[in-house]
């Protein structure tokens, strides 16, 4: 197709509009990312980064048990958090979508995700108030005579998991609710009409239809959870480190930039794998 003079002028304008965003993203995202990937293949000597190409950092990751352990911890915690959050959030989303009167639904949903908007740091700190040895939960348990000694809730994996679950229950309630309300009530009527019991309808009709929403939420949970530094740092204590904590350790105490970069890329690779695993459902959601 021939390009006319006016069309050529239009094309130039279009580039002018798109360019600032493209340049910004290239300069402050793509290029830094590529540079970091390069650094992960370099080494460090006398506190300085030396541009000699090596796979040492990655070899060290798989060789040093405490680094690999951090990844495994992260995967374990993320898996536990994702499963618990879905199990808790689904019934809540269901109740809001099915049992709350239409005109109150929006309010119920806003209330269910309001603390979502407290900042990361403040939210984790709040849980510390609740879970610490002298905190609300332990004091209540002791007062009720259920335990004699305060439980180790904070500074443990339990603390990290509770902090995470709190955040992701809100997120998942939102995505699952969005999925539930867009289902036509006729599906349930049709299933009931064909003789399915309430449980059968849920198992064979509602659950498969809301699976895309669940998977989107699960993927978001996975990505945000495995990359988070604050929650485990505040609530998890020092007994067990997660991958982001180890990355920050490389930066702080050891100033080992190449190693931090390599660990970040491992983190990114794990997220990409998770994406590929979920891609089927994420695509379904988009169509």
């Amino acid at each position: 197709m021939t390009v006319t003079p006016l069309e050529r002028a239009e094309q130039r304008k279009a580039w002018g509009f798109a360019l600032p965003a493209l340049v910004w993203t290239t300069a402050f995202f793509l290029f830094p990312f590529a540079y970091m990937a390069a650094i992960s293949l370099w080494t460090r000597s006398g506190g300085k980064i030396v541009a000699t190409w090596t796979l040492d950092n990655y070899a060290a990751f798989f060789g040093k048990s405490h680094l690999l352990k951090a990844l495994l911890n992260s995967l374990e915690v993320t898996a536990i958090v994702t499963v618990i959050s879905i199990l808790l959030a689904y019934p809540l989303a269901w109740i809001i979508a099915e049992r709350v009167p239409k005109r109150w639904q929006r309010m119920a949903l806003i209330m269910a995700i309001l603390p979502f908007w407290t900042s990361y740091v403040v939210r984790s700190y709040s849980w510390l108030l609740v879970l610490s040895k002298g905190g609300v939960v332990n004091q209540t348990l002791i007062w009720a005579g259920l335990v004699a000694e305060p439980l180790q809730l904070s500074a443990s994996r339990t603390g990290t998991v509770i902090g995470f679950v709190h955040f992701f229950v809100m997120l998942l309630t939102l995505t699952i609710y969005a999925n539930l309300v867009q289902l036509s009530p006729n599906y349930r009527r049709a299933a009931a009409d064909l003789g399915a019991s309430g449980l059968q309808t849920f198992r064979h009709v509602i659950l498969p239809l809301t699976l895309p929403g669940i998977m989107v939420g699960a993927f978001l949970t996975f990505v945000l959870c495995i990359g988070d530094y604050i929650t485990p740092q505040i609530l998890g204590g020092n007994n067990e480190l997660l991958l982001p904590q180890v990355i920050m350790l490389q930066l702080g105490r050891r100033a080992d930039f190449p190693m931090a970069a390599a660990l970040s890329l491992v983190l990114m690779a794990v997220v990409t794998l998770a994406y590929l695993f979920c891609a089927r459902w994420l695509k379904m959601e988009r169509t």
């Binding site: 239009e10 094309q11 304008k13 279009a14 580039w15 509009f17 798109a18 965003a21 493209l22 993203t25 290239t26 402050f28 995202f29 793509l30 830094p32 990312f33 540079y35 970091m36 650094i39 990505v223 495995i226 990359g227 530094y229 982001p244 990355i247 930066l251 930039f257 931090a260 970069a261 970040s264 983190l267 990114m268 997220v271 994406y275």
Partner: peptide, 30 residues
């Protein structure tokens, strides 16, 4: 407007949404 490879360009612009902020921060820091 119609721009060449617009799918790819749009993907570039939304790409940071899919990457952990820790990684974005580390890249910028380096």
């Amino acid at each position: 407007y119609r721009l060449p490879a617009s799918n790819l360009q749009r993907a570039l612009i939304v790409a940071p949404m899919t990457v952990s902020t820790l990684i974005i921060a580390l890249g910028l820091l380096s």
